[in-house]
Design a binder for these strands. Structure first.
Lengths: 356, 356
DNA sequence: CCGAACGAAGACAACGTTGTCAAGAAGGGA
DNA sequence: TCCCTTCTTGACAACGTTGTCTTCGTTCGG
């Protein structure tokens, strides 16, 4: 044993690594005791004195438990893997923030691995597979997949080996639990707001009509109108590119199509970038916001919404919350709890600013 | 040995873990051979046949090396730690992207840990310390610190235990290598562009004059003007809040102060958000961009710069490049190479759009 | 004064690798 | 036939923990 100790010490000198054995020695107790104290085990009985002696030794030596060794021995890593294209296309960064914060609270580490912006069925999943594989090599206890925009995705085969949760996207094969924004609720809230402000003739600047966001938000708009006994006039729905230019073009089309008295008094833009374009179209025509035309957006892209003049009233995508909820759901899964729902919807809250 | 094998197998059944021993058995070779092949060691001589047999077995069994065990045994984790407030305040996300991509290329993992937005000397470093500590527990081989905006920072004591590189910030104590944007070069490039377009009376909308970005960019502007035999008129430099409102106010002040013939024909806004406000001030006065007044920004905030109408010509902050360079520098350091420079400057390129 | 009950020590096997080494088997050339 | 490569093996000690068990002093209540 004396020999072992010497070897260890030599290693410590070489590598600057303080081990539990060192702590035990310094405190004059057994390794077992140290392990018990450090991992705070319940069934063990350790006197207060020994406990403080050990803690002092830990501080004195600057001991830092080796997470890898702990993982190896205890067969649990406390690591989750997050594979996401968000790093590549940083639109929904707040998902990462939410997940990261929640993981931190739960004393877990998030290993973030990049994936390319894959389309739903695309063959371009090289990076995604590789990322998943790498994460599994690290023995993560669960996986999260996060997308920049709400859509169906295909997840690599190997993801099924551990608990997996999808964030801001859903499993095209319908096998994995997912967290997505409540687009319909968001659309309802937006149009409700306009109705409350007295508008009844509302133009809609639509996204690509096939994506889940467009479908949901439009459906919500319809519901809100129905609640007020109104119907959505298909003529007032114009689709365009999801950019400022697209919004500008669409807004021009709606605004120029009718004589003043028939012109919609409010525009529901299905995203903030398009709202940005709509602003320009409105201002160009000498109209004021919200005096002549009220505008409401969607997405709450801070840089746009709160820097536009007047500041844009919009519906927020609950990225941060979805990230946090994803981690929570994953934690529940890894703890062996059954899934509560296949698809959890998260509220899209209205952010009142000055454009309505 | 037979006994050991049995135990292992039982464990494998329980835990679904395929180990090197399993692979060796399946391929009918020794563990040693498998280890040699998988870690691609040089001094070993393995016949082509054995090699393929082993690789086949790996695939057949779906063997995945256990990264933690490897790290433990080989004393290297292939992990770098990145502690950053960017996750919290996602302005400079591209630093993460650059670092992430580079790390991926180098077959290394980036552990990202959050820190709060700490001021230069603030006492608010609780999270930062904790993050650093956690990362060191994971036995990262080096640390990166990244800030959202260019400034001096204090790094936790324990960061000095491993190679450390600062990105978009610098060590207030001057001990650690750092990667920062070449603000002066950026300022020069911006004003040069305006000079080339024939402007000689240039207004400057300044940031808080004390931060490194303002100092550098202004210095660069001065150099460019000097190159054309001009001087920077201190009267034309107006400082404001680093927001659209601040930019609006500052632009109003400059535009309204002079009669038309003395009015500056170009504005150099030290960031894009202020340029956004300046746009409004200019348009409000019935002036056109770039016809009456040219505008150039700084930061290249995509959402603003490329969605403003006309699109904003601006100078880009090389976030992605800085991130990549940070990882490269760290790789050099961990490989034992000496540091080439205390502070590496990265070019800020001009992005031509339509506002000049 | 005896037997619990408690606090602690010590031993040992795992966890899945890496790394080193001595030694054996097969094959080739002289 | 013998030696010398070229492959390949088996053994063993690390790496730093966790986890389980047995053992052994103390101390305390009865």
């Amino acid at each position: 044993m004396a020999k072992t100790t010497t070897t260890r010490k030599a290693a410590a000198v070489r590598q600057r690594g303080v081990t539990m054995t060192d702590v035990a020695q310094h405190a004059g107790v057994s390794r077992t005791a140290v392990s018990f104290v450090l991992s705070n085990r319940e069934n063990a009985s350790i006197s207060e004195e020994t406990r403080t002696r050990i803690n002092d030794a830990v501080k004195a030596l600057g001991y830092r438990p080796n997470a890898g060794a702990r993982a190896l021995a205890s067969q649990r890593s406390d690591w989750y893997g997050l594979v996401t294209e968000i790093v590549t296309a940083p639109f929904a960064v707040d998902i990462i923030k939410g997940a990261q914060d929640q993981a931190w609270l739960d004393h877990r580490f998030l290993l973030i691995a990049p994936s390319d912006q894959a389309d739903a069925v695309g063959p371009n999943q090289g990076l995604e597979d590789a990322a998943t594989e790498k994460l599994l090599e690290q023995r993560v206890e669960g996986l999260l997949y996060a997308a920049t925009y709400h859509r169906g995705v295909h997840v690599p085969e190997s993801a099924h080996e551990v608990p997996t949760v999808l964030i801001n996207c859903f499993d095209a094969d319908g096998k994995l639990p997912s967290i997505v924004p409540d687009e319909r609720g968001g659309g309802r809230v937006a149009v409700d707001r306009l109705l409350r402000a007295g508008h009844s003739r509302i133009g809609v600047i639509n996204l690509d009509p096939h994506i889940p966001a467009a479908v949901g938000r439009l459906e919500g708009a319809r519901e809100a109108l129905a609640g007020a006994g109104l119907e959505l006039d298909p003529e007032l729905v114009v689709s365009g590119h999801a950019t400022a230019d697209g919004g500008y073009a669409a807004a021009c089309e709606i605004l120029d199509r009718y004589p003043q008295q028939d012109r919609p008094t409010a525009l529901f833009c299905l995203n903030d970038r398009m709202a940005m374009g709509a602003y320009d179209a409105i201002k160009e025509r000498g109209l004021t916001i919200p005096g002549d035309i009220a505008v409401i957006g969607f997405d709450n892209q801070e840089l746009i919404a709160s820097y536009l003049r007047p500041k844009l009233t919009t519906v927020a995508l609950p990225f941060e919350k979805m990230g946090a909820l994803g981690v929570q759901t994953l934690a529940a899964l890894t703890a062996g709890q059954p899934i509560t729902a296949d698809q959890q919807l998260v509220d899209c809250p209205l952010l009142e600013r000055s454009s309505v």
